[in-house]
């Protein structure tokens, strides 16, 4: 289907965009990459009266390191994260492992990370990573700018703390320490669909014991979820030798953490081809495997550092 008619404003500055968003009483949508918005407009599930195009706002185009954070402007496309060099250390690795799961190259050359936060789809990889890393969402509205922690930002499918007259200008992701390993795994039916489940994990290991673990879940609830109960189960645990082979032993601590994430942290919503029982199974398995990937990544980083010494 074709989109229904709408008014269009191509803002040149954040102030212009905010003014346009707040200037009328009707339904407005922000257009950045448009790979979700225009899709939804074509499916006529979204029918804005006004589209505010922010693609010509130069100040939103950049990415920078500030105070230990990677600050990602609202016009940074997914494709920018395809190289692990996008950010120093494990963060760049995590982002590059996640981004390949987002659709495919022509979508990634338009869509934006910040747009994913604005859209707040429960299966979004970026939103799950934001929750995992305690990212901060920076918004500008008629009353000035404000920041909201990702953990508080998401309220449900396509619902967030962003008010209709606010524009998300950037997302800040904290850089990760060199002694942290990262993992990202996604389970889906083909290359062309949303994740049934995706998991992001980081593991920090001190003297062979887990000193920090973060686990984020995509599409495991009506919003991205931090698997805190599963993280607690790992605190202080001795990581030991990593199991080999395709299947994680049931009695391994990562498998245990996976079951906790599935039972206590997740609140899966049934979909065609993935009912709640199956989703919990996938969460348990995928969390275990993602932790294993993060542990292997941590070991590899350690080996590089020790080799360098």
């Amino acid at each position: 289907m074709k989109p229904a008619p709408f008014d269009y404003v191509a803002a040149r500055t954040v102030a212009e965009a905010v003014e346009a968003l707040g200037g009328t009483g009707h339904k407005a949508q922000v257009l950045a990459g448009g790979q979700s918005l225009i899709l939804e407009m074509r499916l006529q599930r979204v029918r804005p009266d006004l589209v505010v195009d922010i693609n010509r706002i130069r100040e939103l185009g950049g990415m920078s390191i500030e105070d230990g954070d990677l600050r990602v402007g609202a016009l940074v496309r997914h494709t920018a994260f395809e190289s692990a060099e996008v950010a120093p250390g494990p963060l760049g690795t995590l982002l590059s492992r996640a981004v390949v799961n987002i659709a495919h190259p022509p979508i990634r050359s338009r869509g934006t990370m910040v747009g994913s936060f604005g859209w707040a789809h429960p299966a979004s990889e970026w939103c799950a990573i934001g929750v995992t890393l305690e990212a901060v969402v920076e918004m500008t509205g008629p009353d000035g700018t404000r920041s909201v922690a990702a953990g508080d930002y998401f309220l449900g499918p396509h619902r967030s703390e962003r008010r209709p007259m606010e524009l998300i200008t950037s997302v800040r992701l904290p850089l990760l320490r060199e002694d942290t390993g990262v993992g990202f795994l996604e389970h889906r039916r083909t290359g062309f669909c949303f994740a049934q489940v995706a998991v992001a994990a980081t593991l920090t290991v001190t003297d062979g014991a887990i000193s920090g673990a973060r686990i984020g879940l995509a599409n495991c609830a009506d919003r991205p979820v931090r698997a805190r109960a599963a993280e607690r189960s790992l605190a202080g645990a001795d990581i030991g030798p990593l199991p080999e082979g395709a299947r994680l032993p049931d009695d391994h601590l990562f498998a245990h953490a996976g079951r906790i994430a599935a039972q206590e942290d997740a609140a899966p919503v049934a979909e065609p081809y993935a009912d709640v029982e199956y989703k919990r199974q996938v969460i348990a398995v995928l969390v275990g495997r993602t932790l294993l990937e993060a542990a292997a990544d941590q070991r590899a980083r350690l080996a590089v550092r020790e080799g360098r010494r």
Partner: peptide, 19 residues
């Protein structure tokens, strides 16, 4: 419908002409 926009492949069904 993939075309190159500024040298990059995009879905021309998901880009407004005004953009």
């Amino acid at each position: 419908c993939t075309v190159l926009m500024g040298g990059r492949p995009v879905r021309s069904c998901l880009v407004l002409a005004v953009q």
